[in-house]
Structure formats: C-alpha cells, structure tokens
C-alpha cells in the first residue's frame, strides 16, 4: 500500500541543509497497524506529513496504492487526503468554534458526495466512535477524550483506507489514551491501515510492527 524509496526531506537552516529525513525507505502493507517510534525531532512527524500527502519530499519516490504521489499537484494530493487518508493529531486539529457535527462533516464538504447526505454520514461516524449525543455541542465544550473521538470520527467519515495518527494520546490521560488506542485498533480490525507516530512504548505496543526512527533515519 505504501512504498517509500530513498526519501529525503531537507530544510534550509541558514546556509546549511538540515536532513529531517535521510534516505528513508519503507514499505507498509494494506491492513497493517504500524507504529513509528522516535524521540522528539527524530523526523517522525516529517515522515507522517509526507505519507499523509501534507508535505513534499525533497527527493525520493513515494508510491501510495501503486501510484507515485511524490510529484503530483497540490490539488491531486488534496483529493488523496480527502478520499484515502484520515488524520488524528495530538492537538485534535478541530475547529473549536464549530459544532461537533460540522467538524466531522469537513472531509465531506471538500469531497464528491452530495450535500444532502453530509449530516447522515457524519452522524454515522459519530455513532461509531460513541459520541453521537454530543453532535450539536461546540468542539471546545468537550473533554480531551471526546475531542479525540471527534477527530477520529472525522478521520473515518469518508471511510479511508489509511489512518495516520500523530501522537494521538499525547494530550490525554492514560485511561482515555488506552480507549483511543482501542478505537484505532478496532478500525484496523475492520481493514483500515493504521500508522501511529509516537514516542511512547506503551502506545507503540498496540501496533503489529514498530519502526524506529532516529536522526531522520530508520534504524
């Protein structure tokens, strides 16, 4: 499903090049639950951004479902993000001033489906993550765990094949964190490929494969 070959991500720091990712090659099969583990600044978020079509790599090749996505336009990448990838981020990345249901509807707003089906699909996703009764509340009125569930509902509303989670339990207490990980595990069991970026070994233990990254290289 995912095949990265000799990926480099270089940032300019003054006059010198900083390699956030250095010659990374990686393959992830459909339906896998993979944890990318590494210390802060190791390059795991840069890797996730490239896998998630949020950022471009400086060099190398990235095949997603056998399609080279390393050199496609922003519009095409947006379509892939919208249809094939769901994101769960540490800070939830919700629009706080908007309702829960609006947040869940967001990928549908930028996708192909008809307007009349948005609410129905969003409610279904909310039901799957167990917070359908909170649909009308503003996102900032929810607890951390509930907000992360909203983020997961949003990630799965288009039923993508890939879920990317960047430190999904980073702002949660351990009990809530475990519940979120169980939710991701359940989604994986339903066939979704899940990639979790974490520095926490306990979280990484949920994955069937752990990839460790250090100084931009897979070790």
């Amino acid at each position: 499903m995912i095949k990265l070959s000799n990926i480099n991500k270089i940032y300019k720091v003054g006059n010198t090049d900083f390699y956030a990712l250095n010659d990374v090659s990686l393959e992830i099969k459909k339906g896998e639950f993979v944890a990318i583990r590494g210390a802060s600044g190791s390059g795991k978020t840069s890797l996730l951004n490239i896998i998630g079509c949020l950022d471009n790599c400086s060099s190398g090749t990235y095949l997603l479902n056998d399609k080279d996505v390393s050199k496609i336009s922003d519009g095409q990448k947006s379509k892939i993000r919208n249809e094939q990838i769901g994101f769960v981020l540490q800070d939830f990345a919700l629009i706080d001033s908007q309702s829960v249901i609006y947040n869940v509807k967001l990928p549908l707003l930028f996708g192909r489906g008809s307007f009349s089906t948005l609410n129905r699909k969003a409610r279904k996703a909310l039901k799957l993550v167990g917070i359908s009764e909170q649909a009308k509340k503003k996102a900032n009125q929810l607890s951390g765990g509930q907000r992360q569930r909203v983020a997961i509902a949003r990630a799965i509303v288009n039923w993508p094949s890939l879920i990317l989670a960047d430190e999904p339990t980073g702002q949660l207490d351990s009990k809530t964190g475990m519940q979120i990980m169980e939710l991701l595990e359940a989604l994986n069991e339903q066939g979704m490929t899940v990639i979790v970026v974490t520095h926490d070994d306990k979280i990484a233990s949920y994955a069937s494969r752990i990839i460790t990254i250090s100084d931009g290289k897979i070790v």
Partner: peptide, 16 residues
Amino acid sequence: EGELAVNYLCGCSRTK
C-alpha cells in the same frame, strides 16, 4: 488560519 489548516488536512486544496 487554523481553520484553513484544518480544511487543508481534510482535503481542501490550497487553492480552494
């Protein structure tokens, strides 16, 4: 700015 970034995350292109 944050809302646009969230939109981007959800598949809204930079142009949109």
